[in-house]
Computed example of a mutant assay.
Amino acid sequence: MKIRRPCAEDGARIWRLVESSGVLDCNSAYVYLLLCTHFSDTCAVAEEDGKLLGFVTGYRLPDKPDTWFVWQVGVGSAARGRGIGKRLLRAVLTRHDDLHAIEATVSPSNRASRALFGSLARELRAPLREAAGFASPLFPDSHEDEPVLRIGPFSEYLLRDRPGRALPADRPELRPRLS
């Protein structure tokens, strides 16, 4: 499996994966093209033998440039259970020494995403907090509330060791010592 930055050709592939998921909110194909080109440094795709297995899309928050907002994480049904979602998140984190937090909006019923972000927070040894986000009346259709999950702050030393900057789960000597 290879994880890399997306390119324009990945936009339609991501759109198809989202549409076929049955659980992710499907945005326009144009949005995925923009994310794969304008924001490729804060997105990633996982592929194997030329087949898209999963993706993560996101961007830096304009008013908090040290915070990465994760828009969507998607893994195809055939590839689930392999830890691909977390590997995609980590791949983007390792590209940026100056990120100190992650935010995402996650509905209360989305147990898979909540588990993913909880696991990443534990790995980063960073607090995971929930705050008000987008209330359901803000959406034009029936939609659950989307509270904000925030992981951080986390330390840059957790992302050191280039290339590939291993995180604590991979490199015990980089784990913080707890008193």
Rank of each mutant, 00 (worst) to 15 (best):
P65M: 04
D25P: 04
L33P: 00
E19A: 15
L24Y: 11
A91Y: 15
S40C: 12
R129D: 05
T105I: 08
R114P: 07
E130N: 02
G54N: 07
L53I: 02
V148S: 03
L99F: 13
W71V: 04
Y30R: 14
C26H: 11
D141H: 08
D41A: 14
L158E: 02
V23F: 15
P172Q: 07
Q72G: 03
V45K: 00
T57A: 05
D25M: 04
S20L: 07
A132C: 09
R4I: 12
M1D: 09
N110S: 09
F39G: 01
P137S: 02
L93V: 07
A101W: 12
Y30V: 03
G50R: 04
S20P: 00
G164R: 06
R111A: 15
E146Q: 08
S40N: 11
R171Y: 07
D41P: 00
G83D: 01
H96D: 12
A44V: 01
S107W: 03
D63C: 10
P6E: 09
V92F: 05
P140M: 01
L61P: 00
I84G: 07
E123F: 00
K64L: 13
D141I: 04
R175V: 09
S21L: 07
R90S: 15
R177N: 08
P127D: 10
P108F: 11
A44S: 10
V31D: 07
R87A: 14
A29G: 04
R175I: 03
P147Y: 06
A121T: 07
G164F: 12
A104D: 04
Y157E: 13
V106I: 15
T42W: 06
I84R: 09
A132V: 15
A44C: 07
R60H: 06
Q72N: 03
E146G: 01
A115M: 07
G76E: 01
D41F: 01
A131H: 12
R16S: 11
S119M: 03
R4A: 10
R5Q: 14
E144G: 00
L178V: 11
S136H: 14
A46V: 06
G76I: 04
I151A: 02
Q72V: 04
P172T: 06
L178D: 13
S77I: 14
S21G: 07
C7E: 14
I14Y: 05
A121F: 00
C7S: 13
L138V: 04
A44N: 08
A132D: 15
A104C: 11
W68P: 01
F39Y: 15
G74Y: 12
P6A: 10
E123Q: 13
T105L: 06
P168D: 08
T37D: 02
G54L: 03
F39H: 14
P6H: 08
P147L: 05
G118C: 09
S40K: 12
F139R: 00
R80V: 14
S21Y: 11
C43Y: 01
E47R: 00
E19S: 14
A166V: 03
I84V: 15
K86I: 14
D97V: 05
S77P: 08
D66L: 04
R16H: 15
C43H: 02
L17N: 06
G22D: 10
L52W: 01
P172V: 12
D41E: 15
R82H: 14
R114H: 14
R171F: 05
P168C: 09
R5I: 14
P108K: 05
G58R: 02
R129S: 12
A135E: 12
L124T: 13
G54R: 05
K86Y: 03
R80W: 09
L53D: 07
G85I: 12
E48I: 00
G118L: 09
E144H: 02
